[in-house]
């Protein structure tokens, strides 16, 4: 009887240890957010995001930082940095824009784009320097 209880106890402890280890490893290896699979938290015009940051950066930070946002705007520049595409969406004046750093997989789609075209892009906002910066962007319409 005592022996049986002991075996059960050992099994229970073993299961708990394994479960904790499993949860630990899964948490540790938690994947990055997959932008293309997630619905945007916010959907805005490029001009609006830019003016929000230009008017009150602190307020805009709390609204946009680390959010997946969908931005619509006119392409003013297409470029490559370290083999990754960067799409610049123009603002109202010549100062400031929304710079969208693309996911590496999106480069092919960029080839079909032209400056002056209106486009929707989804990405994670990391803040504002001279421009509003979005990373891990995916192109929504071509």
């Amino acid at each position: 009887m005592i022996r049986k209880t002991r075996i059960i106890l050992i099994n229970v402890v073993l299961i708990i240890v394994l479960a904790v280890a499993f949860i630990g490893v899964t948490l540790f290896n938690k994947p990055h957010i997959n932008v293309s699979e997630q619905a945007p938290n916010l959907s805005v015009e490029a001009i609006k995001v830019l003016s929000d940051f230009q008017n009150d950066e602190t307020k805009a930070n709390s609204k946009y930082l680390e959010q997946i946002i969908q931005v619509t705007g006119v392409i003013s520049e297409l470029s490559l940095t370290k083999e990754k595409g960067v799409i610049t969406l123009s603002g109202t004046d010549s100062f400031g824009s929304v710079m969208c750093h693309l996911n590496a997989e999106e480069n092919k789609k960029m080839e079909a784009l032209k400056t002056g075209q209106t486009i929707a892009i989804k990405g994670i906002c990391t803040g504002y320097l001279m421009d509003v910066i979005l990373v891990k962007c995916v192109i929504l319409n071509e």
Binding site: N29, K30, H32, I33, S62, L65, T126, G127, I133, V135
Partner: peptide, 26 residues
């Protein structure tokens, strides 16, 4: 000028800890 939230880590948990606990990027 450098945005702290623009630092990309191999593991998302590291990135989370970096931003939330260490450099307090908010």
């Amino acid at each position: 000028s450098i945005l702290m939230k623009s630092f990309m880590f191999e593991k998302s948990l590291m990135q989370e800890h970096f931003n939330e606990n260490y450099v307090e990027s908010d």
